[in-house]
Amino acid sequence: MNIKLSVVDQSPVHGSHAKVEAPHLTIELAQLCDELGYHRYWVAEHHDSVHFANPCPEILVASIASVTQRIRVGSGGVMLSHYSPLKVAECFKMMATLHPDRIDLGVGRAPGGTGLTSHALAFPHEPHHGDLYAHQAQMLEGFVNGTLPAENPYSKIHVLPDSSPKPELWMLGSSGGSAGLAGQLGYNLALARFIDPDNCHPSIFQGYLEQWKKAGHAGEPNKMLAIACICAETQEEAKLRAGTAVYRKLAAQMGQREDFLTPSEVQDRYNAMSASDQAFYNHILSGYTVGTPDQCWQEIEQLATAFDCDEIATVTVTHNHHDRMDSYRLLAKHL
């Protein structure tokens, strides 16, 4: 299988740099991945986060596309429940006009932040907590592709600047909840295994394809599997670097919130944990792809085969920005 390797970047606030530099580091990494031959570069959306520094993916997508040459650039994703489908369509169609055949529009159902931020984003209205997501996704597809039925009052709207340049439409999911909807509406599907590897199974793609065919869409859709991955020269070093991301996930599930810890701080915390918490930490780590380039690629190929998917996106979170750049350089040697 000829595997395309892509990137989902959460714009982590690295402890090795000032917090204000995080968006600039995302752009720096995107330029490197463009040079290294990665297929796509997606940026995520988070609000009121001490760990991730991108609340407005459309701005970073435009910035990255303007300083790269060939890599596809997109959102992974826009948290659609907060926004007007028309405005999202206008933003991404404008970017597709400025950067033809390079812009992806990925959308997700999750809020990307706390309940408080959802209320603030919806103000002066009340948040709908994703209850209207299916309707929003349908309208978004209609605005992007010009397919709103004539009886829809919004069908008379022309989404400028022109009807032809379009972003590639994707829907994000982690455990299958959105797969059927993506198939029905004709979206490509990206599975975020890095969020919930325990409940991310190949059957999700199978169900998605069934709905795609049932809806009568032509051709074959694109599928992407997004995984957490840390690559280093040795397996020991990779596991050490991965500790920052693993502990963050452990702490989040325990309701704790603090800046990223260094690998050595994580090891100190790990040694002081109870046996049950250590087991929980090890379980989270087991859902990551961690090791040398050969070890990581072996697992990437296994996952691609298991999920019948020829595109794998990697999510790499480290305390040190250099370690993250190093991980992507090492993985690219097998491209």
Rank of each mutant, 00 (worst) to 15 (best):
S6F: 13
V7S: 10
D9V: 12
Q10P: 02
V13E: 03
P23H: 07
Q31W: 01
D34L: 04
D34Y: 01
E35H: 04
A53N: 11
C56W: 00
S63E: 13
Q69F: 11
R70A: 14
I71S: 09
R72I: 04
V73T: 14
G76R: 13
G76M: 12
M79R: 15
P85N: 10
K93H: 05
T97H: 08
D101L: 04
I103L: 11
V107R: 09
G108K: 13
P111F: 09
T117A: 08
S118D: 12
H128S: 06
G130C: 06
H135W: 00
E141D: 00
E141C: 06
N145L: 12
G146M: 01
G146W: 03
I157S: 03
V159H: 09
D162N: 13
P165W: 12
W170V: 06
G173R: 07
G183E: 00
A190Y: 11
F194A: 02
I195P: 00
P197V: 10
D198A: 15
C200V: 07
H201K: 15
Q206H: 13
E210L: 05
E210I: 03
K214A: 15
A215Q: 03
G216C: 03
P221V: 03
P221H: 09
A226L: 08
I227M: 13
I227W: 02
I230C: 12
E233C: 12
K239R: 14
K239G: 03
L240I: 00
Y247N: 09
L261R: 15
P263M: 11
P263V: 07
E265S: 14
D268G: 06
N271L: 09
A272S: 15
D277Y: 02
Q278F: 04
A279S: 11
I284A: 05
W297A: 01
Q298I: 01
E299K: 15
Q302G: 02
F307I: 03
D308Q: 13
D308L: 01
H322D: 10
M325Y: 06
R329W: 00
L331H: 02
H334D: 04
L335R: 03
